[in-house]
């Protein structure tokens, strides 16, 4: 689609949308948000870019094939579950590493890794479908 308004707006919006998707991903443990919704926002950002600039450029922006994203995301989610074995717990038991810094507290956890995996799978699945629709 060749529209100056859309292309200009997309250039402004895509960064915001991707940032917002990461924000949703990170706040998702106790508040509304999470990997699924974050992944959808990220996927729609790329879809918007694809509509404005063409699918080839969106593909180039992404750099990897969407199907690889599914594989990496699925691996991350499964790994998050398997890490519980290291601690001697059941599959998918949440493990937390909390480190206090001067300015902030860093909380890393297997649920976060799981959510990152979900995020990548969602982006991968939505874009796989979108690109395969575009191929027709």
């Amino acid at each position: 689609m060749n529209s100056v308004i859309l292309r200009t707006a997309t250039r402004l919006l895509i960064g915001l949308l991707l940032l917002f998707s990461v924000f949703l991903l990170l706040r998702g443990h106790d508040l509304p948000g999470g990997g699924f919704i974050g992944g959808l926002v990220a996927a729609s950002a790329i879809a918007l870019y694809a509509i404005a600039e063409g699918f080839e450029r969106a593909f180039a922006l992404l750099r990897v094939r969407p199907r690889t994203l599914i594989g990496v995301g699925l691996s991350a989610a499964v790994t998050a579950g398997l890490l519980a074995a290291v601690a001697g717990d059941v599959f998918l038991t949440g493990l937390w590493w909390v480190r206090e810094f001067e300015a902030f507290t860093l909380k890393l956890s297997t649920p976060l890794l799981f959510d990152v995996g979900v995020y990548l799978v969602v982006v991968g699945v939505v874009l796989t479908m979108l690109f395969s629709l575009e191929e027709h």
């Binding site: 094939r65 199907r67 690889t68 599914i70 594989g71 990496v72 699925l74 691996s75």
Partner: peptide, 8 residues
């Protein structure tokens, strides 16, 4: 299957 997706 996750690994196989990456090995496409």
């Amino acid at each position: 299957s996750a690994v196989a997706f990456v090995l496409h």
